[in-house]
Amino acid sequence: MKKFISGNDAAVQGALASGAQAMYGYPITPSTEILQIWSEEADKNDRLIFLQTEDETTAGFAVNGSVLMGVKAFTATSGPGTVLMQDGLSMAENLRLPTVTIVMQRGGPSTGQVNYSQQELNLAVFGGNGEGLRIVYSAGTPQEMYDFTLEAFDSAWRYKFPTLVLGDGYIGKQKTEVELKHPLNPYQNSSLLAGKNLRNCYSSEEQFYEYLSKNILDFEEKSSLIARSESIGPKNAPELIVAHGSVFFVIREALKVIDPKSKKYQLFRPVTLRPFPKQDLKVAARGKKKIWFFESSYGQLYHLVSAELDAASVSAKIIKVFKPAYRFLPEDIADSLKGGK
């Protein structure tokens, strides 16, 4: 079924289709419609749980509580809210709680700029006091807000890691046709606390190291099942362009004009920022003369992968087009590509 809805609405529809039962949140632009639409859904359906909490910290921890009881629960936020949710995400990470957090990025601190950015990548991937044992999807369209929210609930409960869907203000507010597919087999959930005493406090370095090492090993083992990328254009093209989220789609549009015969550029995106599809990027980077990074941040994506490219002995010239908290239009892409020697 197709519906003309916003990216924020699509996230709610994805959560509903995944069997999510509880949502806790706090109003913050540009993610507020997720809270609003869920509250309207909860008004119509007694099975759904909704609480507008006193702050984002509480929203994050309430999600942890519901998930412990085996209920699929999520929250949605942006900017300073993403900062406040890190403590709860760290708890979820260490206790392997399958929470879902939808982050619609905005720019800068506090109310710096409430439209758009890609500045919350670091927060989404490594924001907590821990090792970033999280799954992070980077969505680029309202359709993907729906699809990746479905996937996020599935991955969270299947692998028991907190999962985030990273979007941005443009995607959240933009209305378009979204195909509401139903998940094939919604992953079954059950209480994670029954018969247990769970903790995030350890008596010694040895005890904690042993516990954490198991989680890290498990994350590494599951990574190949979770990590995903997308690539368009010829694999033997001389130049590679790397971008994520909505910037990927801007570049895709620009390339239709700049490289209509699809000869010069291969365009690569990580669908999951964590675990990162390292192998896919290494393969894409092989033999390239130039590698372009386009991002609406000062290199948060680039810094996530630069070590991998070094390790793969990629000798391509790296060109960074960073516009922190600033949009890209297709013509900006064309100008950059023409200018880059």
Binding site: T53, T57, A59, A62, G65, K196, L198
Partner: peptide
């Protein structure tokens, strides 16, 4: 069943 939460966050978790 016992869950040890974070500092100042036991109320939010128990609400959930």
């Amino acid at each position: 069943d016992t869950i040890q939460t974070h500092h100042g966050r036991v109320i939010p978790v128990m609400i959930g």
